[in-house]
């Protein structure tokens, strides 16, 4: 089992400033899954509990001189602590910059998988090692990782990943994630469970309802991807609640309940600087999915080398949908 690569400047910029801080907020530990073509950071894909996230990069987006080999079709997966990984990259980058400033020749940040004997231990342990070589010196940082996953576990991870790629039939586009985040952050004081409705008319409706209060927000006329439908004229004058309920009855909307905490966490992904986000609900309200879209810098074209999405698994489907 071998893995060795050089982190490119673009890779450093993506991971250090954008993705690692965002992913760290979802959960401290994640699985890093490396294949011949992709590097994927995965949260909670195997335990299926609450909030899942998948951040996938084409190898060229992060690395060059990428070498990987394993007896399992060159696939390697392990768990890593994101804050340690972030710290290691940050400080390696710092060292690289210092060396460059000192006029040293082409410093590159190498990353590789090693097994080492830690101090006070007789068992060799796996590490992800970051090596910065200067003219006269080299700085090595070891980030401890879990034992690489077995063939069976990797297969399970791959199939979970495949099924997580299924898209909801209707997606609505949210441009202003900051506004949504500020709203949800304030809303979370009021209750724990968030009702979410998404309709083919381009409506996204969020609501917290307890015995004492109902607090909600409805965003209308959003851009729809996938299945869409014209909203009936008579629904215009209705309350948001009534409109959503009627759309569900007609089959024009799906509803799901998720944890407010999870929803707020997923909005932290805006630190990864996505250009916009799409929300959709899987059929029968199985889960809420948010897909973040990244543009190629300076264009309005989707950067297909990066993808990030989160799914929230349902607490239960709302029972009050009459």
């Amino acid at each position: 089992m071998k893995f060795k690569a050089f982190l490119t400047d673009n890779g450093v910029a993506l991971l250090e400033k954008r993705f690692l801080p965002a992913l760290d907020k979802i959960d401290k530990t994640c699985n890093l899954y490396l294949t011949r073509d992709h590097a994927v950071f995965l949260h909670n894909l195997l335990n299926g509990d609450g909030l899942q996230s998948v951040a996938q990069f084409r190898i060229e987006a992060l690395f060059d001189g990428y070498r990987i080999s394993s007896q399992n079709e060159d696939r390697i997966a392990f768990a890593v602590d994101l804050s340690l990984l972030h710290r290691a990259i940050r400080s390696s980058v710092g060292i690289c910059n210092e060396l460059t400033a000192a006029g040293s020749a082409s410093e590159r940040l190498q990353i590789k998988l090693v097994k080492k004997l830690p101090a006070n231990s007789t068992q060799p342990m796996p590490f992800l090692t970051f090596e910065t070589k200067g003219y006269k010196s080299a700085v090595i940082q070891d980030v401890p990782i879990s034992k690489p996953m077995s063939r069976a576990q990797v297969l399970e991870l791959q199939s979970a990943l495949d099924s997580a790629q299924a898209l909801p039939k209707t997606l609505v586009q949210v441009h202003d994630l900051n506004q949504l985040q500020s709203f949800v952050d304030r809303m979370r004081h009021v209750g724990d469970v968030l009702n979410v409705w998404i309709s083919k008319h381009g409506d996204l409706h969020l609501q917290i309802s307890t015995t004492l209060i109902t607090l909600g927000a409805e965003f209308r006329k959003l851009v729809v991807l996938g299945e869409r439908a014209e909203a009936p004229r008579e629904d215009r004058s209705l309350s948001a609640q009534a409109r959503s309920e009627r759309a569900v009855t007609r089959g024009d909307a799906e509803a799901v309940q998720v944890s407010v905490k999870h929803f707020a966490k997923s909005l932290q992904c805006h630190t990864a600087k996505p250009d916009c986000a799409f929300y959709g609900i899987a059929e029968q309200g199985a889960c809420l999915t948010v897909i973040f879209q990244f543009f190629i810098p300076g264009t309005r074209q989707t950067d297909k080398s990066i993808s990030l999405h989160c799914s929230f698994f349902f607490l239960s489907t709302p029972s009050n949908l009459g």
């Binding site: 709203f183 607090l215 927000a217 006329k221 309350s239």
Partner: peptide, 8 residues
């Protein structure tokens, strides 16, 4: 196109 509402 965006409405926040509450019933207390």
């Amino acid at each position: 196109d965006a409405c926040i509402y509450a019933e207390i």
